[in-house]
Design a protein around this nucleic acid. Sequence first.
RNA 1: GCCGGCGUAGCUCAAUUGGCAGAGCAGCUGUUUUGUAAACAGCAGGUUACGGGUUCGAUUCCUGUCGCCGGCUCCA
Length: 587
Amino acid sequence: MSDYGEHEATDDPLQVLRHSTAHLLAAAVMELYPDAKYGIGPPVQDGFYYDLAFTKPISESDLGAIESRMRRIVNEDRPFVHETLTRDEAMAEFRKRGQDYKLELIADKVEGDEVSVYRTGDFLDLCRGPHVRSTRDLKAFKLMRVAGAYWRGDESKPQLTRIYGTAWQTPKELDDYLKFLEEAEKRDHKKLGKELKLFALDERLGLGQVVWLPDGTTIRRELERWIIDEELKRGYRHVITPHLAKLDLYKKSGHWQLFHDTMYPPMRFEDGEELELRPMNCPHHIVVYDQDMHSYRDLPLRIAELGQNYRLEKSGELMGMVRVRSFNLNDAHIFCTPDQVIAEVRGAIELANYFMSVLGVDDYWYRLSVRDNVKTKWAGTDEEWESAEAMLKEALDSLSLPYKVSPGDAAFYGPKIDFQVKDAHRREFTNNTVQVDYQLPKKFELEYVAEDGSRQRPVMIHRGAFGAFERMTAYLIEHYAGAFPTWLHPVQVIVIPITDAQLDYARTVADRLRSLRLRVEVDARSERMQRKIRDGQARKVPYMAIVGAREAEAEHVNVRDRSGDQVDSSLDSFASMVATEVAERRR
RNA sequence: GCCGGCGUAGCUCAAUUGGCAGAGCAGCUGUUUUGUAAACAGCAGGUUACGGGUUCGAUUCCUGUCGCCGGCUCCA
């Protein structure tokens, strides 16, 4: 049987419960708004939604009344009744109810003559099920918000009102979820980024333009140094290329034709020259490759750059530092022979995994993004796509990494492996990526001289092993809730003199730590120690070195870490302890 | 871009049915020299996002713009 709702049917009890709650929602809405038309209502992560068309728009203030009606239906103990109708019967039923969207779904998605429907009191829905036995089984739910959603996900189709809700097996789980949302709010990188003065988004600079403040920049520079060193160890060569290029370059690569809507309008000059802010770095690195004749002996050639890119994302798509209009990508393009591809892909995956493991990021999954059957969207031959996909799979398999195939998520020039991470609110996004590309080398007629003297075409691997600094930093802020590991924290140690009499000693301590390249502040304010500690805690500083008369006398420090633990230590051993922790990038 | 919500001091929030815009924190100036999460006092801080409208009177009601938040669409 086909899947009418465009979501996967499942027997998982929680999914079934959420799906049933979606029906309950639609049933309640239909009682309160008899003119409404219902679209689809699947379970989703943490809950469910239902898309409905209202004759008058509703807002979140209407959710309370809908939720009350839902509870009333719960108390009525209405059974979920499964029925199988013929196609004609089903069409007649939904036509009678004026449910045009359901008619469209039956016409498009139901195969054969049997149509599975569920009845809950008067409410009838096209649905494969399964469902809970009765509305009384639905105990722990809450409507969350309304949003617009295009019918069947198509921007050109009408926009329905989507009502989101959350649903759980027990009231306690619901309560836990609501508490989780509160906690997530506190970790939000937009909130912490402001509190900790890491970055700013200022409308005077334009939408989606990130200002890295001094402390945020410290973190970023630390990451950059680390990344560049790790890449150097792995044979990457770094380049620096302009943020601008002639528009023709992007016409030749094919990006302009596909993405001009999200590229900045070109700057046009009197002599006819057109310059474009680059939306990606690939064509620049192709120009780097093309500076020389290449022998197969030169390959693989790994060209890396911390490259600034500019994309004119639609205003509604922007989100904090996760989705911006200008970002810096830890980018690289590996030019190699076809039989080097698998090893190079594997190396790129391993590098990305290494970065993630040092940062303590372990909650992510591998998405093998391949083309779908809309052939016009994808450049290149079937053979090239099949070969590229096979090589990505083999690289993943050889590392014993599990992955999920995702049709339609490929780049236009080839399939890719995406590293999918989740933010504090469990929203998923792509961070790192590895892509195999036969198309751009062809478009730019790249060559190398093979062992037998013939001219061959290299394969290009695009890879962002760390991802974009903006997005990754946003992720890290939420991951650590602002309490960065010592090696990344903008201020590693605050020295706190208890009275002014220890100021000189405090500065001695600071100098000593700075001589080990640690980032240190002395809190010389005319405040009480308690106050300085409190402020240090608020900034989530890893260590506070408190120095009073006793410590100054003994050349000690009283170390308080951000968990509140205290220990007395000689200055020497404290200094070497912190320096070691930083050198090892300990978490 | 579309749908819904929200914009009051640097930050977090108040302000009866439309009736003089307030508080805490942060900032500044003093005093205080302190032993592990907030010393005390004073001062200053605003065209209530911005522009129209209704009204004797608008933070409050209507409207347009801008921005932010949550979704949708998109994501090379």
